[in-house]
Design a binder for these strands. Structure first.
Lengths: 365, 365
DNA sequence: CTGAAAGCGCTAACAG
DNA sequence: CTGTTAGCGCTTTCAG
């Protein structure tokens, strides 16, 4: 009644040994049909469910892949919970979906855990790491050092570019997107096609190779056009959320001086927050000011004006991460670290002055 | 090098017993600071990570909550993977997000697993059940019978209404939405406000109390208006996907006869599929035909014309599910089964003929 | 094809 | 505050 049934109970009730019970679940064909049925029947009667923990412990594998991601949720959005209308997919949602699909194809389940805003990230990875066969880490959710240690024991893939400071390459697998190229192309579009000259880049305070790469792409485009941007991101967001995007606008307008013609944000959420703030202050996008983002989250297409941005193949990143993990788990354990670079595409939409995008297709796409 | 370090290794290297090592991780304050540091240092050197499996086995709890959901993904969408543009959030994505958030607040991680299209669902639940402290099941992913057995051992909450056939109530907790009321109100709107009289309801072949309740709401509205609809859903979708929605349109147009004035679909994905199919055939919504959905997934607002639908509080369902599980896990184990009924709201948009909805607010909402 | 026995790595009383 | 001692429930050789 109160004690969960175990192999022993099932074994006893069906008159076999625990080994046989185990076999029935692990490799049914290795047991005579009659015996098997008897065991299964007993299990059903008892309400037996194999303990994943015991299994994992004994077999040293869980059939689970993991994902650690930062808490991207937007305080602002939370606040306006009038109705959960704004439930557009964020970056992490897409990665989750991609990973789940690929994991399922390979017979794995997915364990997801977001870093708590202030909590000890240590416990986070440790918790996940201890329960999965391998896992992915989104962005810099976890100190690289810790990951390197863990990766000695199980596959870890980082959903971000490798650190680039000199020679000290980590030994992790990486999946990144063409941050540099994408931001370069977008910026060039602003400069060449829209004739903008006074740009401002808004990066983030957190050290992220991806955001760095984007900034470098921005700089490269500026230099190529003979512009001389400040060498550091003019403004830095503390977090990459909508709320911060709005704050940036406050700061920008407060400081006076000549207003930039275009704000190039390091991600969509910042840009969207900025869009709202600008609108509240009576500034029109793109007429008074051009705004661009990066990521291509679905929300970027929902806002008005629709956000010009660089689209990352997020679903695919999730899938590739799983493929990589699975590959490592089945053999290729000690081949060289891999570093996949996925392509991006620039989405020219309204917020940069490109025509109403809801062209021909009246449908979803 | 090759063998993962265990408590024993850490204990030996730091000159304490395994019990102390364990304490350091479980309850740091119960160990003298100096000792603790020594242990932690040894752990760091060795690259020690506690085994979740062993922990779970010994302590009979995992710190993980689970979710089983059906594979809602759309074959159609997969096909048109030209770019993963269409990555709007589906029902399950929202539930996942809601659960993950709430789980995080309570210190749990979330394990998600979708039923394979043809695979043995048995293995699915069993796998999840064996690895979590409690879990939620979306819709009828799993046979109720199996769930009842499992629920004798661990909390299970069903994200759907309870079966209603007579007295045989299952002993599970349920979280459902006001399907009947919602569909009733929407249908009444169609009849009263738009003057439509020739309606057709498209349900699904799968037995689902929720879909049943929606149909009953539809019927009630029809009867109240003196309409005499067929007593069964005129058309039944085999799955609730966009592809099926398109097929339904084919079937409808193929069979000739007087065309209905309004198609009332049992969920948004069907309705969206229908929208596309209708458009391809040159029929205009809502002018030639009114279409409505149910769920209120973000996609419903994205399509053109925007879909009139009944909005479920999906995020909240996920959160409530976790709250319920957590409550059960901490004490309230053997109180009566709970059945939460969450309210819905009708979203009147373009597909029923209600004005352009992108009213005042030019922003996200 | 089936059984016996030895762990897997950790937690949880109990003693000290 | 720390060590000892039993298991937790299953997989896995190795025999039969």
């Amino acid at each position: 009644m109160s004690t969960t049934p175990t192999v022993y109970d099932v074994a006893e009730r069906s008159g076999v040994s625990i080994a046989t019970v185990s076999r029935v679940y692990r490799n049914p064909d290795s047991v005579r049909a009659a015996t098997r049925e008897r065991v299964l029947a007993a299990a059903r009667d008892l309400g037996y469910v194999p303990s994943g923990n015991a299994r994992g412990l004994a077999s040293r594998s869980t059939g689970i892949l993991g994902l650690c991601f930062p808490d991207y949720s937007d305080p602002d959005a939370e606040a306006s919970e009038a109705d959960e209308e704004d439930a557009a997919m964020l970056y992490s949602d897409q990665i989750i979906r991609g990973m789940e699909r690929a994991a399922r194809r390979h017979g794995y389940a997915l364990l997801i855990a977001a870093s708590l805003k202030e909590g000890s990230a240590e416990s986070l990875v440790a918790k996940v790491a201890g329960r999965v066969d391998g896992f992915a880490v989104l962005s810099r959710t976890v100190p690289t050092e810790e990951l390197e240690i863990i990766s000695r024991r199980q596959p870890v893939v980082m959903l971000a570019g490798p650190r680039e400071d000199g020679e000290h390459a980590d030994h992790l697998d990486h999946i990144e997107v063409a941050n540099f190229d994408g931001q370069l192309e977008l910026t060039r579009h602003l400069i060449d096609d829209h004739g903008l000259r006074r740009l401002a880049y808004i990066g983030s305070a957190e050290e992220s190779p991806d955001v760095e790469a984007r900034f470098r792409g921005y700089l490269a485009a500026c230099r190529a056009a003979g512009l001389d941007p400040a060498h550091e991101p003019g403004l830095r967001a503390r977090m990459m959320t909508q709320a911060e995007g709005a704050h940036i606008i406050d700061a920008l307008l407060a400081r006076g001086g000549p207003r930039p013609e275009a704000l190039v944000f390091a991600n969509d959420q910042l840009a969207v927050g900025a869009l709202h703030a600008l609108q509240e202050r009576g500034l029109r996008v793109p007429d008074d000011l051009v705004v661009t983002g990066f990521d291509g989250i679905p929300l970027s297409r929902l806002v008005r004006p629709a956000l010009t941005t660089v689209r990352q193949p997020m679903l695919r990143m999730g899938e590739e991460a799983v493929e990589l993990l699975v590959r490592r788990l089945s053999g290729g354990r000690d081949t060289e670290p891999v570093s996949l670079m996925l392509p991006v595409t620039v989405a020219r939409r309204e917020s940069c002055g490109c025509g109403k995008p809801e062209n021909g297709d009246p449908g979803v796409h």
